[in-house]
Design a protein around this nucleic acid. Sequence first.
DNA 1: CGCGAACCTATCGTTCGCGATATAATCGCG
DNA 2: CGCGATTATATCGCGAACGATAGGTTCGCG
Lengths: 147, 147
Amino acid sequence: MTEIEGPCLTPEDMLCFDVYALGQSFGRLYKPLLDPLGLTYPQYLVMIVLWTGQENTVGRIGERLGLETSTVTPLLKRLEAAGLVTRRRSEIDERRVEVGLTPRGRALRAEALHIPACVEGATGLDPNEIRALRDKLIGLRRAFGQD
Amino acid sequence: MTEIEGPCLTPEDMLCFDVYALGQSFGRLYKPLLDPLGLTYPQYLVMIVLWTGQENTVGRIGERLGLETSTVTPLLKRLEAAGLVTRRRSEIDERRVEVGLTPRGRALRAEALHIPACVEGATGLDPNEIRALRDKLIGLRRAFGQD
DNA sequence: CGCGAACCTATCGTTCGCGATATAATCGCG
DNA sequence: CGCGATTATATCGCGAACGATAGGTTCGCG
């Protein structure tokens, strides 16, 4: 009822709006590139972690992507069902589940190598600008301190 | 099998990783602020559109947030069930559904007014830096050209 | 006016994403 | 060694998020 018309609380003033909408846009940008590989966008992000990293566990993958294990576990099961990923209990610490790649999962990497360049092209930014922007986003995430 | 070890395809080189993870972080940052209001993060974003805008339809709300109507429709139904929002067919164009606020939905605005300042504080950035960052994100989204 | 095209919303099935909770394994302190 | 606390994963229920599809409305061209 009260006619508060403050400058705050408009979408135009809020960073979260743009981060949110850009996240959606990234998903849509990647979709046509990932469909031929049979991967969803979050599955692709997990595969990148696996392609580059070693000694991956469920929890470690979640940390890298900022996801809970309750999200990662079913995602990995789908990748396992697709024949791309292996999951087995660690022998050293049986609480952990070590996640690895099948030969098919490793081979898929070659089919995905062209994607980063496509996306970089779509941004219209040069590597320096991307670097600078990433530093800001990383700093922001760190400022939230949710580790 | 082939030992490709290119510099590409590592999480450290990819902008999408940071946008993705930051989006998750924003959701977690807002959660404790929104729980007292009984809103989820996407519901809050919709409410902001409604608090500021006029003449809102399902499709228009989706445009603002970068969401499909198949996402917005059930979301609005939950807000309607919560007594915050009204939905009714336009009399001028019966394809459209006009979305408005109930008194309770309008009143909720006052309880949310403090939130933007909290978030701005958490970022550790001054308004100018936020402005500059937002411009980059908006530009990026525009470059993807998914309107 | 009439009819096909375009438009707006809703529904369905699948995949994410979280918190709460459960279960099992390891750690640490006495 | 022994037992509580912590750690790691899995499960469940709910709320997003999308594409495909379907239904009804309006538009536009003949």
